[in-house]
Design a protein around this nucleic acid. Sequence first.
DNA 1: TTCCCCCTCAGTGTATACACACCGAGAGGA
DNA 2: TCCTCTCGGTGTGTATACACTGAGGGGGAA
Lengths: 212, 212
Amino acid sequence: MRASDRAYVTLLDEIQSGALAPGTVLGEVEQATRLGVSRTPLREAIGRLVADGLVTQQSPRVTVVTDFDADDIRALFEARRALETMMARLASARGDRSAFRALSEEFTRAHLDSDEAIEAYYALIARFDAALDAAVDNAYLTSALRTIRTHLVRARRLTSDNRGRMQASADEHALIASAVADGDAELAAHATHVHLHNALTAILTSLPEGNR
Amino acid sequence: MRASDRAYVTLLDEIQSGALAPGTVLGEVEQATRLGVSRTPLREAIGRLVADGLVTQQSPRVTVVTDFDADDIRALFEARRALETMMARLASARGDRSAFRALSEEFTRAHLDSDEAIEAYYALIARFDAALDAAVDNAYLTSALRTIRTHLVRARRLTSDNRGRMQASADEHALIASAVADGDAELAAHATHVHLHNALTAILTSLPEGNR
DNA sequence: TTCCCCCTCAGTGTATACACACCGAGAGGA
DNA sequence: TCCTCTCGGTGTGTATACACTGAGGGGGAA
């Protein structure tokens, strides 16, 4: 693995997890020393983070970790809705129906009654997203969504896992997958809309009073 | 202006204009020499182009200008539709109505009967896009759309300006702007859909037979 | 003659040195 | 006392040197 990749992955994780708080100044020498690489690969990593939008060039000489608050979450979900409803529509027209039928059944069967089950549920969602990406086969949509998902990880840290919400989320996913399997584009899109609405509401509700 | 910015802007323009054809291998030393910068800023420029998707790391040791064909145009318009219909909806709810009313009238008045008028029309579209960006005020949507637009420039080179189509496009824009000004989100979204459908059809029609 | 191995070289990845610009502190003058 | 100018320092931007890896060609052996 290249040094620049290591630096990127490390910084990415630290920003997503909140270890590097929004507003933190990222000095090149300081970070390079800390991560044990030279300034050259570190600059490359910072550049990629800037392209991702996770890091901002506040002034020509100072780069900081990008801010992230409730308004960002709302904006993120607007973009997500635009992209994911389109993905649902296109997958309905193009997808491998049996694959989505199987995924739908997996979502239906999911019982989130243990930590392992929750881990497995996250993995299932990842497989569902991958199936959508594969079915739609549109690099531009996939890449835009990838950026959105990168930012979304930051929202998790502001919220708490809510088991009731997760069970409902599984049911919503089951419906989306089922609609895709049936080739029902309208239902798939609208079920995605509903799912995102509920997910956003749950996230905003779980935010501490002052952060909404 | 920094050397890396110069290199980026130059390469960007050459890729968008087709001066650097798809598949062209971009050797660091070769390009750095050609552009009169050292490898360090050139690598930064290449990195940004990779993030944009205009350049691809074909193998660990060779980076090439990303391919671009009719299927890419279709995929691009799918992503564009997802984002722009959402922009239209949100702008309808949030936009400065008088600004869009004025833009709508400008579109209605546009008569594309000279090269200068066409230049002015392109500028008007740019102002319209900027007004949408400002009205929606969503950095994630704007940034995703910015990437899409960057790629879209490449499509222009494959097509020819068609004056009849452009006049129709002006009318379509007038309707979108008018719907936004009226706060009619549904109409704005559907008019955007129609506009993109027509634009895509015109582009694909104008492609040489073998490229469709 | 053909196949395989080794060597060379081209080209990237990283480290480092140097240049330069901006910011802040301190001192001097008004 | 306050404003301004200058000087030093900190940190980025760029150039360059070195290291390493992978590919291609040539030579040797079967």
